[in-house]
Design a protein around this nucleic acid. Structure first.
Lengths: 190, 190
DNA sequence: CGTGGAGTTGAATACGATCAACACCGGTGG
DNA sequence: CCACCGGTGTTGATCGTATTCAACTCCACG
């Protein structure tokens, strides 16, 4: 995975001024072990490229349990949040002393969108949305019981619920059809 | 979510010739319920935009079990595979009679990369790689036991294994620290 | 030293998987 | 028109895996 500056250097078609101005906005920082870089609910998140050290991102569910979402060792980038407008879902923390390249997401989006074309922006947005959906799914699979997953699904995708056989819902939720059938009964008895 | 043609129409900065040539390559097809559009291991995959109907993507694990990865109703796009060079991980199937916009991935990549700048291509690639990782993680969470997840982790991320406390590995795998400890014992007794 | 976090072990429990039997259609062919 | 069939969903009994809770060891670090 290439670092921000490497990407910028590989830039062939962006103008020199754009490249230079964006490059100025990348912070390079040394940050000690155990620092919280971002917390759940933060607006205005950053993107981190790990030059040295190790990061983790994690969420804390309603029951107070931590779920690690991703480790990012040297050469990886860590980011969270579909857009720079919505609050983040994850905490990001240094697990070792780190050297990081830090790029503010709002700046990233603004600079890039002005320097590039509409279709690519659209494409990126759609990929980011997809990532956000998958991220929520992973947290769900790690933290929620069969019942909770089902209730979440019914809320999120009522239109799909009525159009596919139950066993496929079960398969999507990661449980057996029998388990789903039983879970639905528990549910009406409340 | 915008359809391919809508995106193309929103295009402001791509040249007219590029837009027109790409537009020609989008197939619009009606496809009956129950058709397999793509199977696990296919090369040369497509991207599908659902104008009408419903798609599902799923994988089949070593034990022969199906796991639904995603439903795509009207207005969603369905795609799989990090790049057009690697074999796909998923089956894609129509669950209803569908009307689809179909765009070949290789064509998409070739046209776009020639018409856009290096940094955006780099950015897209990095997002696609991230999606591929998450996709594998979801399949893993749905299909693998604690032991299998741990063994997979040790193979994939040996460098991380030695740098973080075990309870964090457990948290990443979606199991309790106690369970991980027990799983490791089972393991040496073989 | 002594204290607290990390890891291990064991016992009891809970949750979902598996297996088997059965009810309920919806469609097909006799 | 009805009988049959396969697929879907339900229910119950049993089993297995992971969770929970508690006790204990072992360091690392003050």
């Amino acid at each position: 995975m290439k670092s921000f500056t490497e990407i910028l250097e590989a830039y062939s078609k962006l103008s020199k001024e754009d490249t230079a101005s964006l490059k100025k906005k990348i912070l390079i920082k040394s940050i000690p072990k155990g620092t919280l870089l971002q917390r759940q609910g933060d607006l205005n998140s950053n993107v981190y490229y790990v030059k040295k050290g190790l990061l983790r991102s994690y969420s804390i569910d309603e029951k107070g349990k931590e779920h690690i979402f991703l480790f990012a060792p040297e050469g990886w980038t860590m980011a969270d949040g579909e857009s720079h407008e919505k609050p983040t879902d994850l905490f990001i923390e240094t697990l070792e002393d780190c050297e990081l390249e830090i790029l503010n997401k709002r700046i990233l989006v603004n600079e890039f969108t002005s320097a590039t074309n509409a279709s690519e922006v659209e494409r990126s947005k759609s990929l980011l949305r997809r990532i956000a959906v998958m991220q929520k799914r992973i947290i769900m699979l790690m933290s929620a019981s069969a019942l909770e997953r089902y209730e979440h699904f019914t809320k999120m995708y009522p239109q799909i619920l009525q159009r596919v056989p139950q066993k496929m819902i079960a398969s999507y939720l990661g449980i057996t059809p029998e388990a789903l059938s039983k879970v639905k009964n528990q549910r009406v008895n409340k």
